[in-house]
Design a protein around this nucleic acid. Structure first.
Length: 434
RNA sequence: GGCGGGAUGCUGGAGAUUGGUUUAACAGGCUUGUCUUGAAAACAAGUGUACCAGAAAUGGUACCGUAGGUUCGAAUCCUACUCCCGCCGCCA
C-alpha cells in the first residue's frame, strides 16, 4: 500500500509509476472517494463531539423534564449519524479496495520496460564449463542416476511434482547447511542484535507454511496473484509460495527498536505454487513444480538503508552462487516485470550447459514500505521518537530444485556421473555421485 | 473433538457486585530535571497509537482481544468469532 498523502500530493508521480509497471488504476476515482470520505468523517466526528458534550451533561441535570428533552434530542442526532455511518462504511470499503489496487512504485534507477524481455543483464560471472562431450540435460542425467523421479511423482501427486532421491536429497541438505553456515555464522543467539560492519548474522528461522488471508493480503501477493496461491478453504489458510510471506507477516503490528535494525532472517521452508498461469511452460522435470524447498533471506530495515540492504542481499546471493562455482548472470528487472510489492528487483540466472541457456535461480526485491504499511510494521525513530514504517527486503539464498539442476548440469562428467561441488563435500560425504 | 478459565496501556495488575470527567487506579519500567566530583539512592515532572482539520500552536474523534448489538452514555450489559492457558481424548 502507498501513503495516501503521497497520492494526494503527487498524483502525477503515482500515475507515472503505475504506467511504468503496466498497471492501470483509477486515480481520479480514488482521490474523489478519499475527499468524500474525509468530509464524511469530519461531519460524523463533529456530531459525535456534540453528542459527547451533551451526554456528559445529562447525569448532572436534576429536573426531570430537562433530562427527557435532552435524551429525545440525542435520539434525533442518532438517526443522522446512522445514515452518515452507512455512507462512510461504503466509502471506506471502496477506498481500501482502490488503495490495494495500487502497486508499489518502481525506484528511480529501475529501467523502464514493458515485460521480461526488457530486463537488463548487468554482468556475467564465472567461466562456463568446457566439455569434451555433448553436455546432457539434467533430467537425462538424473534419471540414469535415479536422483529425480518425476514419473512416480506424477503417479502419486500429478504433474509438476518430483521425488528427490539419493544424492539429490543429500545435496538439498548440503545446500541448506551451506546457506545457514554462510549467512548465520555471526548470529549471536542471546541478543540477535545486528553485528558490526554489516556482517551476515541472519536469524535462522523455520516459519509456518500456512498463513491467514489478511496477512497474505498484507504481503501484497493476492490482488494480482490469487491464482498462483493454494488456499485451504476449510481452514481459511493460504499455503506460502515463499517463506518471505510468513517471515514478513511475523512482525505485523509491531514496533521495532531502532537498534535491532536491520533485523535479518534466514528462513527455510517448503514453497507451494499453483503455476496456474504456466500451462505448457516448463512442463518437464522439476524446474517449475508445485512444491519445492527454499532458504530465503528477509530483512526489516530503516527506510534510508533499504537500497543498501538490497545490494547486500544481492552480494550474498552472488557469494552463495560463487561458492558453488556455477556461472551466472545478474539481471536487473525492468519496471513492467516487477511484482506488486517490489520497487526494485534483481534476478540471478544460473548457466545451464545442458540446455545452453540461463535460468533464474535467485531473486531479490526491495519492497520499501509497501508491505510494512499494509502489515503495520514500524520502528521507533530515535530522532523523532515517532514510529515510522520499516522497509522490507527479501532474497533467495538457495532455491533447492533449481540450484540442484544447475549443479547437475555444470558438474556432469563424461562417464555420466556428477562431481559434488567442493564446498558441499563436507556435508554430503560423497565427492561424486554415480 | 469434549469440558473449564482468561484476553486491559511498555510490563505487572485493578476495574467485576452500583453502566456516566476511566486513557484508564496502584506498582514497576523508561525519559527529563534537582541533589552529587561521578554513580547509586532520594525527590520532582513527564511517559500510547491512529485518523481528521490546521502553516503551526492547538482542537476534535476513535481505540481496554476482534466484529456486531442494547443505551442519551459501555472496559463495565448482550451476541458471534479469534487467540491464549488448564484437564480429557487423539497424535508426529
Amino acid at each position: 500500500m502507498l501513503d495516501i498523502k503521497l497520492i494526494r500530493q503527487n498524483p502525477q508521480k503515482v500515475q507515472e509509476g503505475c504506467e511504468k509497471k503496466q498497471v492501470k488504476i483509477n486515480l481520479g476515482r480514488l482521490l474523489w472517494v478519499d475527499k468524500k470520505r474525509r468530509q464524511t468523517i469530519q461531519a460524523l466526528e463533529d456530531m459525535k463531539s456534540q453528542k459527547n458534550k451533551t451526554t456528559s451533561q445529562i447525569p448532572k441535570i436534576e429536573e426531570e423534564g430537562e433530562k427527557e428533552k435532552l435524551i429525545l434530542k440525542m435520539r434525533e442526532l442518532d438517526k443522522n449519524s446512522d445514515r452518515l455511518n452507512g455512507n462512510l462504511k461504503q466509502l471506506q470499503e471502496e477506498f481500501n479496495d482502490l488503495m490495494r489496487q495500487i502497486p508499489n512504485l518502481p525506484l528511480e534507477n529501475v529501467p523502464v520496460g514493458k515485460n521480461e524481455k526488457e530486463n537488463v543483464v548487468l554482468r556475467e560471472i564465472g567461466e562456463k564449463p568446457e566439455f569434451n562431450f555433448t553436455p546432457k540435460d539434467y533430467l537425462e542425467i538424473s534419471e540414469k542416476l535415479d536422483l529425480i523421479d518425476v514419473k512416480r511423482a506424477a503417479k502419486v501427486s500429478g504433474s509438476r511434482f518430483g521425488y528427490l532421491k539419493g544424492g539429490a536429497a543429500l545435496i538439498e541438505f548440503a545446500l541448506i547447511n551451506l546457506a545457514f553456515e554462510t549467512l548465520s555464522k555471526d548470529y549471536n543467539p542471546p541478543t540477535a542484535l545486528p553485528a558490526e560492519g554489516g556482517a551476515p548474522n541472519f536469524i535462522p528461522v523455520i516459519p509456518p507454511v500456512m498463513l491467514k488471508p489478511e496477512l497474505m493480503e498484507g504481503m501484497g501477493y493476492v490482488e494480482r496473484g490469487r491464482e498462483e496461491i493454494y488456499y485451504l478453504k476449510k481452514d481459511k489458510l493460504y499455503l506460502v509460495g515463499t517463506s518471505e510471506q510468513s517471515i514478513g507477516a511475523m512482525h505485523a503490528d509491531e514496533i521495532f527498536e531502532e537498534k535491532v535494525l536491520p533485523k535479518r532472517y534466514l528462513g527455510f521452508s517448503t514453497c507451494f505454487r499453483r503455476e496456474a498461469g504456466a500451462y505448457g511452460r516448463d512442463t518437464k522435470g522439476i524446474l517449475r513444480v508445485h512444491q519445492f524447498d527454499k532458504a530465503e533471506m528477509f530483512s526489516f530495515c530503516r527506510p534510508e538503508k533499504s537500497q543498501e540492504e538490497h545490494q547486500f542481499f544481492l552480494k550474498m546471493e552472488e557469494k552463495l552462487m560463487k561458492a558453488l562455482k556455477i556461472p551466472y548472470r545478474v539481471v536487473q528487472i525492468c519496471s513492467g516485470d516487477l511484482g506488486d510489492p517490489a520497487a526494485a528487483k534483481y534476478d540471478i540466472e544460473a548457466w545451464l550447459p545442458g540446455q545452453n541457456q540461463y535460468r533464474e535461480t535467485h531473486s531479490t526485491s526491495n519492497c520499501t514500505d509497501y508491505q510494512a504499511r499494509r502489515l503495520n510494521i514500524r520502528y521507533r525513530d530515535s530522532k523523532t521518537e515517532k514510529p515510522e514504517f520499516v522497509h522490507t527486503v527479501n532474497g533467495t539464498a538457495y532455491a533447492i530444485g533449481r540450484t540442484l539442476i544447475a549443479i547437475i548440469e555444470n558438474y556432469q562428467q563424461k562417464d555420466g556421473s556428477i562431481k559434488v561441488p567442493n564446498v558441499l563435500q563436507k556435508y554430503t560425504r560423497f565427492k561424486k555421485i554415480g
